[in-house]
C-alpha cells in the first residue's frame, strides 16, 4: 500500500477505505477478501485495541507477503483470547510457546525456514508490552543483536492486562493498576525513567523500527509493509488501548489512541538503521488532560483535589516528545504556547 497523495477526497488520508481510490491503493482493511488473520469469535473484551491492532498488522503483513506469514505469539491477552481450546481464531500459522520467549521462538522459526531454503515465508512475532519490555526483553535484545529475520510487534496496552491489569515497565506514571493502586500520597504508578523500547531497539541499529497506533490505519499498514521490505530484525511498537485496563469506554479505543498521539504522549515515527526517518506530525494538538480524563486509571488526577502538578509533569513528558521528534512545526508550537 502506498501512502495517499489524494488529499482532497472527503476522507482520503484518514478513513479505512475510499471508494474513489483504485482497489490496490486502498487499505488492506478495506478489502472484502482481507485475511482476517484473527477471526470473529475471539474472546477479547468489547472494544479491545489489541485484537484490532493484531488484525491490522497481520493482515497487512499477509498482503505484503502474499500470504506467506508465520506468527509466533507470547503469552498474554492476545494469546489467551484467541486460542482457548477447542477454538482458535487464527487463520494463519500460529505458534504460542511462552510469555518471555517469543523473540527466540521466532528466531528458531526463521532459522528453520532458512535451513530449509524457504525464502518466501516470513516470520512475525508478537507480544504484549509485558512480553516485550519486561520478561521478553532479553530474548528480544538477543534477536535484535543477531539481526534475525523477524518482524517483532509489540502491542502496547501499558500493563499486564491478561493477569488482571498489573504494572509493567510500559505503564505510564500516575496510572492506576492493580499493583500501583490509586492510594497514598502519590497514587498510581511512580514516575520512573521509562523504558522506551523503540529507542532501545534503535540503539541495536536494526534496519527498521517504527511506532504506530490503532488510530491511524494507513500509517500502521504502511509501516508493516515497509518493515516487510527489509530482512533482518525489525520492530514495530503499536499502541493499543485496553478498555478494561485503562477504564475507558469500549467505543473510545481508537479515539483514545488518537489522543495519545495528538497530545504528544505517544510519538509516532519510524527509523531506519537507527536513525529517525519520519514522524507523524500532530494534526490537532490537544493537552494531555484530554487524553487522561477519558481513562479511569487516571481518575485520581481529576478528583475533588485535582493533581495539577502531576498533570503538568505528564504534559512536560508530552512536550519533551514533541521537541525530541519535532511533532509540531515551530510556528504552531509558538501559537499553542
Amino acid at each position: 500500500m502506498t501512502s495517499q497523495d489524494v488529499h482532497f477526497y472527503q476522507v482520503g488520508s484518514f478513513a479505512v477505505g475510499n471508494r474513489l481510490l483504485e482497489q490496490e491503493e486502498r487499505t488492506v482493511q478495506a478489502q472484502v477478501d482481507r485475511t482476517n488473520s484473527i477471526d470473529s469469535g475471539h474472546r477479547a473484551c468489547q472494544g479491545c485495541g489489541e485484537a484490532l491492532g493484531a488484525r491490522y498488522a497481520l493482515d497487512a503483513a499477509m498482503r505484503a507477503t502474499n500470504g506467506q506469514i508465520v506468527a509466533v505469539n507470547a503469552t498474554g491477552c492476545l494469546e489467551v483470547f484467541s486460542t482457548p481450546y477447542p477454538e482458535t481464531s487464527w487463520r494463519i500459522p500460529w505458534l504460542h510457546s511462552l510469555f518471555g520467549n517469543a523473540p527466540a521462538v521466532a528466531t528458531g522459526v526463521a532459522a528453520a525456514l532458512r535451513a530449509k531454503g524457504i525464502e518466501d515465508v516470513r516470520v512475525v512475532a508478537q507480544a504484549g508490552d509485558g512480553g516485550t519490555v519486561d520478561i521478553g526483553f532479553g530474548c528480544l535484545s538477543g534477536m535484535f543483536e543477531r539481526n534475525d529475520d523477524v518482524l517483532f510487534i509489540c502491542y502496547d496496552n501499558e500493563g499486564y492486562m491478561n493477569t488482571g491489569v498489573q504494572r509493567s515497565a510500559a505503564t505510564p506514571p500516575a496510572a492506576r493498576t492493580a499493583t500501583t493502586k490509586a492510594v497514598g500520597a502519590e497514587p498510581g504508578n511512580t514516575f520512573g525513567q521509562g523504558k522506551d523500547l523503540p529507542r532501545i531497539a534503535m540503539a541495536h541499529n536494526i534496519p527498521y523500527v517504527a511506532t504506530a497506533t490503532v488510530a491511524d490505519l494507513h500509517d500502521l499498514e504502511r509501516k508493516v509493509e515497509r518493515a516487510m521490505e527489509f530482512h533482518g530484525a525489525r520492530y514495530l511498537h503499536v499502541l493499543v488501548p485496553c478498555p478494561l485496563g485503562w477504564g475507558s469506554a469500549s467505543n473510545e479505543t481508537i479515539h483514545i489512541a488518537r489522543l495519545a498521539k495528538e497530545s504528544g504522549l505517544f510519538p509516532v515515527f519510524e527509523a531506519e538503521d537507527g536513525v529517525v526517518r519520519s514522524v507523524s506530525p500532530i494534526r490537532r494538538r490537544v493537552p494531555v488532560e484530554e487524553y487522561l480524563k477519558l481513562q479511569r486509571r487516571f481518575a485520581h488526577l481529576f478528583g475533588p483535589h485535582p493533581r495539577l502538578d502531576v498533570i503538568a509533569r505528564i504534559q512536560s513528558m508530552a512536550d519533551a516528545n514533541i521537541e525530541r521528534y519535532g511533532l509540531v512545526s515551530p510556528e504552531s508550537l509558538e501559537e499553542s504556547s
Binding site: V70, V72, L95, S97, L98, G100, N101, P103, A104, V105, A106, T107, G108, V109, A110, A111, A112, L113, A115, K116, G138, C139, S141, G142, E145
Partner: peptide, 16 residues
C-alpha cells in the same frame, strides 16, 4: 543469549 533462548529457538525451529 541464554539457555532459555536456546530451547526457545529449538522450539521454534522444531515447530517449523
Amino acid at each position: 543469549e541464554s539457555e532459555f533462548a536456546a530451547m526457545s529457538v529449538a522450539i521454534g525451529a522444531s515447530a517449523t
